[in-house]
Design a protein around this nucleic acid. Sequence first.
DNA 1: CATGAATGAGATTTCATTCAT
DNA 2: GATGAATGAAATCTCATTCAT
Lengths: 211, 211, 211, 211
Amino acid sequence: MSAQQRRKTRRDRREEALKNAAIEVFYEHGYHAAKVSQIVKRVGVAQGTFYLYFEGKQQLFGELVSDFLELVVTTVASWEPAEIDSRDILESELRRVGLLLTRVLLDNQQMTAIFFRESLAVAPEFNELVRHTYDTLLAMLTDFNAILHRRGLIAEMNFRILATMTVGMVERVIMERIVYDTLGEAEPEEIVDHLIFQYMAGTLSLDEESS
Amino acid sequence: MSAQQRRKTRRDRREEALKNAAIEVFYEHGYHAAKVSQIVKRVGVAQGTFYLYFEGKQQLFGELVSDFLELVVTTVASWEPAEIDSRDILESELRRVGLLLTRVLLDNQQMTAIFFRESLAVAPEFNELVRHTYDTLLAMLTDFNAILHRRGLIAEMNFRILATMTVGMVERVIMERIVYDTLGEAEPEEIVDHLIFQYMAGTLSLDEESS
Amino acid sequence: MSAQQRRKTRRDRREEALKNAAIEVFYEHGYHAAKVSQIVKRVGVAQGTFYLYFEGKQQLFGELVSDFLELVVTTVASWEPAEIDSRDILESELRRVGLLLTRVLLDNQQMTAIFFRESLAVAPEFNELVRHTYDTLLAMLTDFNAILHRRGLIAEMNFRILATMTVGMVERVIMERIVYDTLGEAEPEEIVDHLIFQYMAGTLSLDEESS
Amino acid sequence: MSAQQRRKTRRDRREEALKNAAIEVFYEHGYHAAKVSQIVKRVGVAQGTFYLYFEGKQQLFGELVSDFLELVVTTVASWEPAEIDSRDILESELRRVGLLLTRVLLDNQQMTAIFFRESLAVAPEFNELVRHTYDTLLAMLTDFNAILHRRGLIAEMNFRILATMTVGMVERVIMERIVYDTLGEAEPEEIVDHLIFQYMAGTLSLDEESS
DNA sequence: CATGAATGAGATTTCATTCAT
DNA sequence: GATGAATGAAATCTCATTCAT
């Protein structure tokens, strides 16, 4: 029986229930206005039970953010750069990862909102966690861009700035689409298309362009 | 005597001092950990005095965010679209506004950081203020893109998504450069160049391209 | 099979183990900071098991104090006043009991410390237990002094005050020697000698003195 | 206007009122059962006011114990050893200090009770404070005894043990008389007489005796 | 007998805000 | 206008004890 197949223990299920309730409460009221009493009431357990599973409200928040970041990083890191040897393949790989990420975030809409609204405002230690993840992500993308350049797929430029811009585009589009629903009419496919087009056009080398 | 020339009254000066102290304290500790007592101590006035100038800690925060947003919107809105009738002029106008915005934000580094970290996490009413500003800004940029398209300067696409992506690129680049200093080596000019290049390339119409 | 010879049952052994663990934990952390969880962890049994042996933390504490007091009273009460008909015999009997008590307390150093530090601070009902024992002890010593006086061995005085002073001397000397180790260099024998000398001198009748 | 004459400020008076109320509540319920809410209710101030004057319940307790110890040490240290050059003067000086201490403790009966019952059971840091005071007191008395011996007033012996025994006698007599009222009928004078007689007899040198 | 997850009462403490001076 | 002592609401968290398994 593999770890993934193993039936969840009672403990696991209760912890998960508390986390899900916490996400709802944090989403509805914001971290600071959220009360532990609201969380436990939703699950139907006593106040003290909460502290059997988490050290406190803040530690739970950290765990949620950490889970979320891991999910995002895992998703983004799922591409396969080895195979990419043409701009067409690059584009289709970007589309695959983009749609995957979109689906994951849509499945975790409330947590996505919590992350963008509050992850930097709860406690300094979580800022570091978030910063660390951004650093990792940006470094990964920077490297990726450099590799693509060496393969002659994208133009010469400051790859770190390119990575930063890319992350920014994606983030804001996600926020507007998933968190605030101000792009309500747009299908994920259309959004991903625009992101990819922007990225592809912005990285077109003149050589390629002239060909 | 014009409003600008009018000597600041003692009241004005004290309010400004309190706001500046508040920015420092919010920057250093975050909104929730910041204490009114810390703010007044820096200015050297009594606790009660604070409430002669502001309705409370939250209202002051709202005022700071509001001031900041006004500053940003004013800066971004300072372009002159009337004159833009070629991609060259578009580019130079974008460069002008980009550098202006960069300077403004560098001059208000702490407030920029506070805004990105906390503006959505303090209270629901401020979320609305921020949302409203984003909506205004995005609508403005969307319109701008539509105008440019009508003038044949940029390609056909979903201009709202384009505006959203643009805002995202700018935001994240600002955060990394100004708030977190992870692009420390890059000059503002280089950053603005990359932003403009990305935007220009991503909006190139095929017609234009072939011309 | 006598009670003493009877092999200890598993139940007896476990109860004893819990008591010993409790003494350690109370000694190290003090009654209020001591947690039942720490006690059961040392013995390696579950939290609930504790309540099969004791009614609760406080009752256990009471039992420990009670055991301790019984031990002390039994020891002190082991003299044989019937035989004492000269100050020499009195002195040697005091020496015997003094050394016996010293040995007993040295064997129960932690419990002695717990008793002096905390027995009056846990709950009113234990104060009564402790008071009762002091009353019994003081009454016993008062009677003893009265008997000795009637036998012409000690001078006329307030025998209750004499008993009280004697108990005080012994207590403080025990605390400093056994609990706080501030008389570290002094051998039990030397200490007992000083106590006896003080008592004997303080009870010398003038008649005896002149003889 | 000297410091002692200076009228108490409002702040001083309120702090004192809180301390007095705290002594009553600690006396009646014991430290752990005492609630801050009970203390403030007696003084008629809000819960928060308490924390303007003390860091918390524990720190207040420490301050009370500290005040008490200072009072006792100051009283005991008020003798004048310089003048003592005969056993008669020694005796009268001991009587003076003994009666003074008795009066001081009778004036602070509740605090005396709190001290003996609880000072070692609240927190480790207070144990150290108490120990330190005992060490100081015992060292002082040990020196005192050594001086008296050098002046030929008391016999050769272990002066530290003598000091320890003396402290013990006094303590237990105080407890029984002032805290528990088990010597109720005895006048302070009678008690002090017995203490002094015990001390004087126990320190009689043989030379003196024979003279 | 043994287990250990769950309970839940309630005290401490903080700090924005008020208001009498 | 300025002061700063006083207010007081309310949330977190602990841990002895219980009881279903």
